[in-house]
Nucleic acid binder design. Structure first.
Lengths: 346, 346
DNA sequence: CTGAAAGCGCTAACAT
DNA sequence: ATGTTAGCGCTTTCAG
């Protein structure tokens, strides 16, 4: 086991104190440029790397933020990460990515761990199961700033960066109805998630305006668990039932791609037999068969804005982060999956 | 600023020493169950969380591994992460995900940072630019085990987990030729990456066997940078040139999706005018227009196997990890994008 | 300009 | 069964 080299070793080698080494390495004013040079040279030669744990312990700050996500195999989250890293990089901060895999228990464990002081701040997009906010409150009580992004919690005081979910749900549904749907259905990712409920509310509003009431509450489909198998079987049931809907608003990308796979397998034509619009950030929407109409969330910007708020709070001791509430609008991209025949043949 | 509670506070409250607190909290044998109860109760009541930096500093182990990836918006990497986390979770280890964004300089900075002792081990998939291994050698010299996965470095002694790139490249190309391609081209992600070169070698071998020599070295296309814009323009040039190839093997998913977008825009028919096979893990391949033939890498298994090797090395002081070399085969999934007319109409 | 000394919060060897 | 003590590697007064 090779001995790890530390400040004491550098100090001994150069006949200096560790204090001098420490100051020299951070280019402090009260060290002569001569010694600075010597210290830096030796440090480089011996491949010295400061021990981050010692430094964090002493300074009580880690120069690290945590990003807690349900999953990473979703374009929204990959793009959001890029937005977050774009600002963290400028600040010289580390970004730790934690995955909750849509499990509340895992999210709770991660957040609890964060409140140990491991990180200086947290960006969180909650799981589809999350209803309680106790774990987040604990974090806030420990004075660790947190920003909820995209998937926030309703009725809970915290900094939030989200998109205009209600309006987007309304707009998508209105489009489907304009294009001839008489019986659309909303595929919800979660019965508790604000994001999903907002989108669903917009959906309901559009139905109501159009005087569509046939399914009542059943126009919103929830999923008992979120495994591919379960989603597959529930959507298959819906699609092969006697009263198959003629339009679908999918609250997240995965629901739409699974729907596509089922329609392919069952030879059900999109959009002629069923029209589809999905909340999704995939760049592949144009090359789907048929091309997928999407509500595209500003993923990068949401990540960026969240990180900016977080760093504001990290910088200023007495900054009331929990008053921040930003809404960045989504864009509707109409493609073939939601067109009616006239438009399509046009 | 609320005072952060620590062991000293617990000890004072209960009239015990910090040593007793420490032992009680880790359920040591030589503490009476009576005091254990009291300690645990108070810890819970006061929301005590141990300071991980103090603990890591003292124990010289962090219970954390780093995963260093070029990007996360790629199904291979998201699945690999899941494989890694599946084993880390069992071991009670933290997983830090770092993104190099395909930039060697960033990768180097991350790896250097890892050699500070911040993590107990590293899983690395190198950038498309990486040719030097000095940064990795430094890590090995610091006695921090590392496993290269998927994108490994040639001629460099280290633990590696990869797939059968050469055979897969050969197989894909042979399929294209069998299906009628007379002039296929290979889209390479990197001129230096072992993974890409292996796939390209398999490609060349298949051409050679079929007696196809028209493009010579130009049958392999490299990209000067890896921005979407640059890829888009280079592929557009290729596709709109006088001698358009009649088949494409894409070494990574993104190259294929951009190709699809271009063909859509230019109204070029896949597979009639140009056939496509891609190395890709996307579950959406069947719903592409046309469905995409893929070489599917065992992403989850590669992640899992890498993590298992890493933990073996972390557990045993004198275990020569660098001898490990695992190859897990990919699967070919033929779909419409590579079929010839007869098969297609069949 | 440089150094001595204290201490961040925790653990482990060694008392008692 | 519990306590004393030293120290992980670094930063930060405070003295010189």
């Amino acid at each position: 086991m090779k001995k790890k080299i530390n400040m004491k070793a550098l100090a001994a080698e150069l006949n200096l104190s560790t204090a001098t080494i420490s100051k020299a390495l951070k280019n402090s004013h009260d060290i002569s440029s001569e010694t600075k040079k010597r210290v830096i040279a030796l440090a480089k030669q011996l491949n010295y790397t400061p021990n981050p744990y010692a430094s964090s312990l002493r300074k009580k700050t880690s120069h690290t933020i945590a990003v807690v996500l349900p999953e990473v195999a979703d374009n929204f989250f990959s793009l959001a990460i890029n937005g977050i890293e774009s600002v963290a990089e400028k600040k010289g901060y580390h970004v730790l990515i934690y995955l909750s895999h849509e499990k509340f228990e895992i999210e709770k464990a991660i957040i609890d761990d964060c409140s140990s002081g491991r990180v200086d701040g947290v960006l969180l997009s909650v799981t589809r199961e999350t209803t309680s906010s106790n774990h987040i409150q604990k974090l806030q009580a420990a004075n660790i700033p947190i920003v909820l992004f995209d998937r926030a919690l309703e009725n809970f005081k915290a900094a939030k960066v989200v998109t205009n979910d209600y309006e987007s749900g309304y707009l998508a549904t209105k489009k489907l109805i304009e294009n001839g749907c008489k019986d659309p259905v909303f595929l919800s990712i979660s019965a508790s998630l604000s994001l999903s409920n907002q989108r669903a509310e917009g959906f309901k509003k559009a139905l109501q305006e159009a005087g569509i009431h046939n399914r009542k509450e059943n126009a919103i489909i929830h999923f008992s668990d979120f495994s591919n198998e379960q989603i597959f079987s529930q959507i298959t049931n819906l699609i092969t039932s006697k009263k198959r809907p003629d339009g679908i608003v999918a609250s997240v990308e995965r629901l739409a791609t699974i729907l596509y796979l089922i329609c392919l397998e069952r030879n059900i034509q999109i959009p002629d037999e069923i029209k589809v619009i999905a909340f999704s950030c995939t760049e592949n929407a144009p090359i789907f068969n048929p091309s997928l109409s999407t509500i595209t969330q500003p993923a990068f910007q949401i990540g960026k804005a969240s990180a900016e708020i977080l760093f504001k709070s990290i910088a200023k001791e007495n900054y009331n982060i929990n008053n921040e509430h930003i809404i960045i609008p989504s864009k509707f991209n109409e493609r073939k999956s939601s067109l009616n025949k006239e438009k399509k043949n046009h």
